[in-house]
Design a protein around this nucleic acid. Sequence first.
DNA 1: TCACTTCGGCTACAGACGTAATCGAAGAAT
DNA 2: ATTCTTCGATTACGTCTGTAGCCGAAGTGA
Lengths: 128, 128
Amino acid sequence: MSKRKDAGERISEAEHAIMEVLWDSSPASAAEVCDAVCAKRDWSIPTVKTLLSRLVQKEAVGTTPQGRKFLYHPLIERSDYVGGESRRLVDRLFGGRAAPLFAQLAESEALTDDDLAEIEALLREMRK
Amino acid sequence: MSKRKDAGERISEAEHAIMEVLWDSSPASAAEVCDAVCAKRDWSIPTVKTLLSRLVQKEAVGTTPQGRKFLYHPLIERSDYVGGESRRLVDRLFGGRAAPLFAQLAESEALTDDDLAEIEALLREMRK
DNA sequence: TCACTTCGGCTACAGACGTAATCGAAGAAT
DNA sequence: ATTCTTCGATTACGTCTGTAGCCGAAGTGA
């Protein structure tokens, strides 16, 4: 079954940074979100608020009236987002095949020994 | 700033479709490019021309005056582009680690048996 | 040589995105 | 109650992206 309701509009790069914060500490106020990213991305509160409201519009985050303020929380799972983005890349760049992606990462030395070990473990585990 | 490598202007989604055509058949005229994508993406010649000129501006494709017309050819390697995009995704979504990406793809069933076999082969090969 | 066709080059324009200032209502402080 | 402070909401605006129209120079056929 395909939960055909969400999947609304695409989440932009900047918006994703906000999502990341919310996925990290679920209910948070705009100010708290800013505390978490404003320094890193050199944003100001207004920017964070705009991004938050756009995410609300896109139904990617929900709000809970906490007294007079609002608390924001993600409405979509991080794994869903990440999975979608990953698949989109694989589709667009590698014709939907994951192996070439892996080869590409390997070639550009983006794979650490740890990665290799982990992937091997995963492979072994899937091998049944 | 970091390593301000030239030829760094971002290539957009639509532009990438054009690049893909050029990577496939190196020197091509605008009309030929259109023949290859206009149907698929439902574009018109003007659109292709705009995208081509933007890519020229971005120094992602070069031109060769062929008599009266122009022939376009890519100036950046497909592997470079693909590698860059892949790494960008891995950095943004998985903190630079490839293993989680792999796990993600596995979980979302984006890995075919062929993929697994190929990856295993690659792994074995890198194992020395 | 003179319409007619072909191209590349500018121009256009709406929608998304990044970034942020301003406004107005609700609380807090005095 | 009056003012000060907080927030969310609204508005702003330049850039990038997707899509495409128009224009003028060059080539073609008669």
